[in-house]
């Protein structure tokens, strides 16, 4: 889920930071530049882990700031394909599920990666929103009113990373389109042990009883 990445960057240190110790000032500037931003093919920058080296300190003509070349390690969030992650449900619509980790929100589980057979049940007041139901053991469910395997956001959801993509920045965006996401994770819950945590807690209890 998290990796260390070694990065070299040439940065301009503004004069108002020069009263601070050099490494502290540079760290502050690096955090301003990188934190909570996605670097394509690298991932979401979480934190500056350490600074390996600081070189330079040149002041270019006509500039009041000194320029340094810094080599540092950054903690990045970059899940690998096949990794299992626990997330919360953010939104559920006819296209699938939208999950969130709190610090990263662009996680989608499309319909074809939901457990099959699944069906979507839209809310009466909002046709676009609803809940997904896994129709497992339909004979038992026919007797009870409420379906057993519902994805409704009360539980944490375990999913497997299916793909991580870094879309290129669009030149133009339609007004009604979603905000641009620089990193999108596609997940799958179509496997035993994946999906809402409570589904499998029930299974464990049944197993223990038998």
């Amino acid at each position: 889920m998290f990796y260390l990445s070694l990065i070299e960057h040439t940065l301009r240190l503004p004069p108002h930071l020069l009263h601070l110790p050099l490494d502290e000032a540079i760290k502050m500037e690096l955090e301003t530049l990188f934190l909570d931003k996605v670097i394509a093919k690298l991932g979401l920058c979480i934190s500056v882990y350490d600074i390996r080296s600081i070189k330079g300190g040149f002041i270019f003509p006509g500039d009041g700031a000194s320029t340094y070349t810094v080599e540092f390690r950054m903690i990045v969030f970059r899940p690998f394909v096949g990794e299992i992650i626990v997330a919360k449900l953010k939104e559920s619509d006819a296209n699938g599920l939208h999950l969130s980790l709190g610090f990263f929100d662009d996680i989608y589980i499309p319909v074809h990666l939901l457990p099959s057979p699944s069906r979507f049940e839209s809310y009466p007041n909002n046709r676009n929103q609803g809940r997904w139901i896994w129709d497992f053991g339909e004979a038992e469910e026919a007797q009870s009113e409420e379906p057993r395997f519902v994805i409704d956001g009360t539980d944490l959801i375990k999913f497997r990373v299916h793909s991580v993509i870094y879309p290129s920045i669009p030149l133009e965006q339609p007004e009604d389109s979603k905000p641009f996401a620089p990193m999108v994770i596609t997940g799958s819950i179509d496997y035993d042990g994946l999906g809402p945590v409570s589904w499998w807690e029930e299974a464990e209890m049944v197993q223990d009883e038998s």
């Binding site: 998290f2 990796y3 260390l4 070694l6 070299e8 670097i39 979480i46």
Partner: peptide, 24 residues
């Protein structure tokens, strides 16, 4: 910006949590 090493080592969730705790 130059990426010298994209994967300089994987971290467990514990290591990240420990690092954040060490920073306060």
């Amino acid at each position: 910006m130059k990426i010298k090493e994209a994967n300089a080592g994987a971290l467990t969730n514990f290591e990240v949590l420990d690092f954040l705790r060490s920073r306060g």
